[in-house]
Amino acid sequence: MALVSDALPQPATPAAADEYVYQRHQTWRKFKRHRLALAGAAVLILIAVGAIFAPWLSHFDPTASDPNWQGTPLAPGQFGHVLGTDELGRDLYTRLLYGGRISLTVATVAVVIEILIGTFIGALAGYYGGLVDGLLMRLTDTFLSIPLLPLLLVLTGIVAASSSKASLNFTSIVLIIGLLSWMSVARLVRAAFLSLREKEFTEAARAIGSGDARIVLRHLLPNAVAPITVQATLDVGNVILLESVLSFLGYGIQPPMASWGSMLANAQENVTIAPWAAIYPGLMIFITVLAVNYVGDGLRDALDPNVQ
C-alpha cells in the first residue's frame, strides 16, 4: 500500500508548482529549438548592450563635429572614425550607439503604454460583453479606420509647432504612438476573455464569491498573457519602424537628440557624397526589427500549447 500511495500525485499545491515549472521549462525548450529566434535574441542583447554602454564603447562625443572635418563627411577609416562621419562631421559609429538608446526606449515605453490601454479596453469589452463590448469595439474600429501614419504626422506636427524642446518632443512621440496603437492588443485580449469567461474555473471563482476585479486579474488575465506577450514583441518592431519613419520625415525625434530614423533625415541629399551615412542607420533599424520579429515568431511557437 505504501508503494501505491507514493506513486499517487502529490497534494495540490506542490503539484501545481511542478506543473508551472514544467510548463516554463517546456516554453524554453521549444524556444531554444527555434534557431533564428535564438539568434534574434542574441542580436537584440548585443544591440541593447551597445546602447546601454555607449559611453564606454566609444570615446567620441555623439553631438560634436570632428576638428578635422572641413565640410565634407569623413569617409570610413579617416581620423579613427570606423564607419566615417555624417554630413556634420560627427562620428557615425558613436551616433549609432546613442541613437539605439532613443530608438529602443521609444519602442519599449510606447509598447508598455499600448499594452496597458489595449488590455484595459479589451478586458472590459470581453468580460462585460453586450453594450460595453459594442461601444468599445466600435471605438477600436474607428481608430483602425484612420490611416495611422498621416494621423501620427498631424499630431507630432502639432507638438513640433507648439514647442521646440527636444525632451518634450521625445515624451510626446512616445505617448502619441502608445495612444494610437493599442487596437490589436485590445482585439486580442477581448477575444481571449470572451472564451475564458465561459470556462469552468471562472464560474467556480464567481461561485465562491470573487468580485469582477479579482476574477479578471487573478483568473482571466494570467491566461491571456501568452498572446499579449507575442503581440507586444512584434509591436516593438512595428514601433521602431513607425518612429523611424516619423523621424525620417522630420516629425519625430528632434535634434540634438538622434534616433536611427532621424539620422537618416538628411541622408537623401547626401547620398552621393556620404553613402555610408545612409546605409548604416537603416541597417541598424532593419537588423533590430528583423531580430524582434524572429524572437516574436519563436515566442509564438513556444507559448502555443498545441506545438510540441
Binding site: L241, V245, F248, A267, P281, G282, I285, F286, V289, N293
Partner: peptide
Amino acid sequence: SMPVFWFALM
C-alpha cells in the same frame, strides 16, 4: 522588418 524609406533610399 524593412524600413520602407530606407529600402527606397537604397
